[in-house]
Write a protein that binds this DNA or RNA. Structure first.
Length: 949
RNA sequence: GCCCGAGUGGCGGAAUGGCAGACGCGGAGGACUCAAAAUCCUUUGUAGGGAACUACGUGUGGGUUCGAGUCCCACCUCGGGCACCA
């Protein structure tokens, strides 16, 4: 062993040397406060330092501090943002770059239940471990700006923002603050004033002064942006808590824990995100996000324009939502969801039994079965009919489970000729299918049938623009001859509105956000209750600290006990829940709200706290927010300059966060309309996972490959690819990589394996490639025996050309976050230098500076060896000399009839005629032409010559 | 079923409509070494040929173009999201 080690030169770039370099520079950066970004105002103010620098706010989606720490899949995005931040610092920017921890949530609570340790203790330990791992990676975060959502100094402001939302209502009439339309949040006090003055009428028209305290409170609470409401929720007895719709899996079980989930109605805190539905859709246009993510958000919000139409029935009016009011004349029956409240009243005696049986069957079905594709339509007739408002015809009312309670009004008008589901339902039950549009000839031709209005010949419904027929009544509505859906809809809506049968209406798929959890490890609500309902605590009482307790887990129940009721851990703490307070009208007794907020709350505004993390006066100083996030003028919404994170947050986090930001904007607390201007979705690092014959995952690290087959302790196993993590037993810790190669190598490897937005498999054996690269760079600049710099004479013009082409390419690549190709270009430059035999003295510094964002520790060490006393983090990034980017001659490929046949070398400023002549004179071209006369010659300057013969 | 992505060597990937496979891994051969590791050099899409070279080649089939991995149409496969959304 000793002998083997002595063979390695003492100053070779080995993992041991890499460790030494990295730890030393990490300590240096910390001591010199290298990454601290000055603020223009507030506690971190340093106005002189801010002056003269452009700002840049770079943000990662912050991690949840799990007990297993980081695996190498986590830092892909972090390394990317670090490279970008370091690069921009070298370009003279003041870069705000920080990292925090999204530390509330169920896993910490459940882990704490298992280990008996308080979640605060385990969370603190996990955060400390992840901080260590991230620091070891050399990320250039401003350490002063780190936040932890479970820190009372942080969640004090989460609670404060909640109170801002609670104390607001949405005025749909007032022009928005950004001038982009109507609607804005206003202080609830202004609504009360409007009620008092009579400017705003009460719901039942009585004078405000005549109302009791209870009535007034109920009216006001009903308008708040955060409100308590009876809501259909997913009760999960196995977790002892309610889970959000978004957290329920397709098979009706909980996302975490995989327990059965039951639909129940319970009183819950809700956030009125639906008030912002229009703005959340419209303002997507202002953002630099990919179309894919924008489309996903639009689909989630699901705006559809149509009409609400009322049909008279024996049980009263039935309201339906339709996107095609223009097809009302074709509505020949109605379908209600089995759970619709009018079903009982509509059902006649002779149909009672069938309806009851159908409702039982539908209720017993899990959502997944109800949504099963391709099954036959089912349904039963209620025995009653309603009246179609446009033609007074009787339409039978059915119930069927393909109509859902949760969307629209839970009732539809069925137009079998114009909607495929209705068409199938009508065929199934022998209901009439009158035609109300004349489909175009091509539609019939495409289906191989004769054009006819006899729908018995149609294989399916016709959907789209086409002239209407049979669509007129004697009461002023006549669509016959109209041929566009838009015009038909407009005319129908107008008629419906005038005759009071309905009105044009926009419907959203988005529902209000269920905001309370019956758990322990979350932010307590800054709310107490008196006999009339919730009462906001004053700002002075914040933070409302999460009370200490031994029993911090929610009470759990038999997972199948649907009718159990949630019991929050806070419910049991009488000493905490029962309080006497003076909230302005003398001391009174109150009961604290025992819910906690969902994990989303802390992540809804963390980017704002990074900006001013130590401010005790306010959640963020307005001047600081304006500096880092303010709009850059003319249609720019403001927000984070670059936000990098996984596509799995495309909808929920990014929607909730935008909603909170918009409320804060409406209330004048922030100057930016949107929180995240540019969003970049990084890919996942996938890792091989192995299952044995019992379909159980085995430790991937223990699997051997033999001849393309895989074995775990000699048992054959099968390979699949998945996210890295505990559940697939395929995690690779960055600590292993630091030991084997060092952080610089890990950084380069993760960046080199592909573009940032692509998912790619982790291959530990490939990591060595980047290690070798750094070793070769080191060897080109440092003598491996003496450790002294080893530089050659000044570069030739040819070498300078290579250098400047590299500089140009690397700049372009990093600007576009194409870090993988930037690395390739640096490897090419280094390989070129290796062939030269030594690195010219005037190439060494630009090379080191270009490496600085990517492998910062190695670059710092080399920079010091080149004789610099200070760090290079603020050295200007090299700039390419345009004169060096053009060569005297260029090599041009020549095609004959589109096939590449030869290459010619001509002056780079050669005219087309010169290029043509050179191409025609080329021996291989002459051979390929074989005597044929060129018919046409295409010269693409600098690219190619193509001779068509 | 709908929406959004993506299909390129043994593997990860590169390529403003202009020489497909940069760069890295892996493989093969060589140098150094008693030997091995490490390091360095050469080579490596497939088929044929000693070689020059020739043919083929970016999921499939068409199309546009002087020229297509790249643009258009249809289809197939994989990944992600949504889902009887009226």
């Amino acid at each position: 062993m000793a002998h083997a080690e002595s063979d390695i030169p003492p100053f070779r770039y080995t993992s041991a040397l890499a460790q030494d370099i990295e730890l030393r520079w990490q300590a240096w950066w910390e001591q010199h406060h290298s990454f601290e970004a000055p603020n223009p105002a507030g506690p971190l103010a340093d106005p002189d330092a801010v002056a003269g620098m452009e700002k840049l706010f770079v943000l990662d989606m912050f991690p949840y501090p799990s007990g297993t720490g980081l695996h190498v899949g986590h830092p892909l995005g972090y390394i990317g943002t670090d490279v970008y931040s370091r690069y921009k610092r070298m370009a003279g920017y003041n870069v705000c770059y920080a990292m925090g921890f999204d530390a509330f949530g169920l896993p910490a609570e459940q882990y704490a239940v298992q280990t008996g340790q308080h979640p605060a203790v385990t969370t603190a330990a996990n955060v400390a471990n992840m901080r260590r791992q991230l620091r070891r990676l050399g990320l250039s975060h401003d350490p002063r700006r780190s936040i932890d959502t479970t820190d009372p100094g942080y969640y004090r402001w989460t609670q404060w923002i909640f109170l801002q939302i609670f104390n607001s209502w949405y005025d749909t009439e007032l022009p928005s603050r950004d001038g982009r339309g109507l609607g804005r949040a206003r202080p609830i006090a202004e609504l009360i004033t409007a009620f008092e003055s009579g400017e705003c009428p009460t719901p039942d028209g009585r004078e405000w002064a005549e109302l009791t305290e209870a009535e007034r409170r109920a009216i006001v609470d009903d308008r708040r942006l955060a409100y308590v409401s009876e809501a259909p929720v997913n009760w999960c007895p196995g977790l002892g808590t309610v889970v959000a719709n978004e957290e329920v899996t397709a098979d009706g079980r909980s996302d975490r824990g995989n327990f059965p989930v039951f639909k129940r109605s319970m009183r819950q805190w809700m956030m009125r995100i639906t008030s912002y539905a229009d703005r959340l859709i419209d303002d997507l246009d202002l953002l630099d996000w990919t179309d894919a993510i924008k489309t996903m958000q639009r689909n989630w919000i699901g705006r559809s324009e149509g009409a609400r139409v009322r049909f008279a029935s024996p049980a009263g009016e039935i309201e339906v939502f339709t996107t095609r009011p223009d097809t009302l004349f074709g509505a020949t029956f109605m379908v209600l969801a089995p759970e619709h409240p009018l079903v009982a009243a509509l059902t006649t005696h002779d149909h009672a039994e069938a309806v009851a049986a159908y409702r039982r069957t539908a209720a017993a079905k899990k959502d997944i079965d109800r949504q099963d594709l391709g099954r036959d339509k089912t349904g039963v007739f209620t025995g009653s009919s309603a009246i179609n408002p446009v033609n007074a015809e009787l339409v039978p009312v059915w119930i069927a489970d393909y109509v859902l309670t949760g969307y629209g009004t839970g009732a539809i008008m069925a137009v079998p000729c114009g909607d495929q589901r209705d068409f199938e339902f009508a065929r199934q039950f022998g209901l009439a299918i009158p035609a109300i549009q004349t489909p175009p000839a091509a539609w019939f031709a495409g289906r191989g049938i004769e054009a006819s209005l006899d729908t018995a010949t149609w294989p399916e419904a016709y959907v789209g623009d086409a002239p209407y027929v049979n669509s007129a009544n004697a009461d002023g509505l006549d669509l016959n001859g109209v041929s566009s859906v838009a015009e038909g809809t407009r005319l129908t809506n107008e008629w419906l509105s005038v005759r009071s049968h309905g009105r044009g209406n926009v419907n959203f798929k988005l529902r209000d956000w269920l905001f309370s959890r019956q758990r322990y490890w979350g932010e307590p609500f800054p709310i107490v209750h008196d006999e009339f309902g919730p009462v906001a605590l004053p700002d002075s009482s914040l933070p409302v600290l999460l009370p200490e307790t031994e029993s911090f887990s929610p009470r759990t129940f038999d997972p199948d006990d649907e009718f159990s009721n949630p019991e929050s851990p806070l419910d049991r703490l009488d000493w905490w829940t029962d309080v006497e307070l003076d909230l302005g009208d003398g001391p009174r007794r109150y009961h604290r709200d025992t819910n906690v907020m969902p994990q989303w709350a802390g992540s809804c505004w963390y980017e704002l706290r990074y900006l001013d993390p130590t401010n005790d006066e306010t959640f963020v100083d307005p001047a600081v927010e304006q500096y880092w996030m303010g709009p850059k003028g003319n249609g720019h919404p403001g927000g984070v300059d670059l936000y990098v994170g996984g596509v799995e947050h495309a909808v929920l986090h990014l929607l909730y966060s935008r909603f909170w930001h918009k409320v804060l904007f409406d209330l004048g607390h922030v100057s930016s309309i949107e929180p995240y201007y540019r969003l970049f979705n990084q890919g996942l690092i996938l890792a091989a996972a192995f299952k044995d014959e019992r379909e159980i995952y085995v430790e991937a690290a223990e699997v051997e490959e033999r001849d393309g087959l895989f074995f775990h302790h000699d048992e054959p196993v099968t390979r699949e690819w998945g996210r890295m993590g505990k559940s697939l037993k395929n995690g690779v810790s960055p600590d292993e990589m630091y030991d084997a190669y060092g952080a610089d190598t890990l950084r380069l490897y993760e960046m080199s394996t592909g573009p940032m937005d692509a998912s790619r498999p982790w291959e530990t054996r490939d990591v060595v490639g980047m290690y070798r690269f750094l070793q070769r760079v080191w060897r080109n600049l440092v003598d491996e025996d003496s450790g002294e710099p080893r530089l050659g004479p000044p570069a030739t013009v040819e070498t300078l050309r290579v250098l400047h082409r590299t500089i140009d390419g690397v700049r372009t690549d990093i600007d576009g976050l194409r870090i993988n190709t930037a690395i390739s270009k640096l490897i090419e430059l280094n390989n070129y230098l290796t062939k030269l035999g030594s690195c010219p003295c005037d190439v060494a510094e630009p090379l080191v500076l270009m490496l600085a964002p990517l492998s910062p520790h190695l670059a710092e060490e080399l920079w010091a060896k080149l004789g610099h006393a200070d760090s290079l983090i603020r050295e200007p990034f090299p700039v390419a000399d345009p004169a060096m980017l053009v060569a005297a001659t260029i090599e041009l490929p020549v095609q004959v009839n589109g096939k590449f046949r030869s290459r010619i070398v001509i002056p780079s400023d050669a005219t087309e005629a010169v290029a043509t002549a050179a191409a025609l004179a080329d021996a291989k071209v002459i051979k390929s032409l074989n005597g044929a006369e060129p018919k046409k010659i295409i010269v693409v300057p600098g690219r190619t010559v193509n001779i068509v013969a």
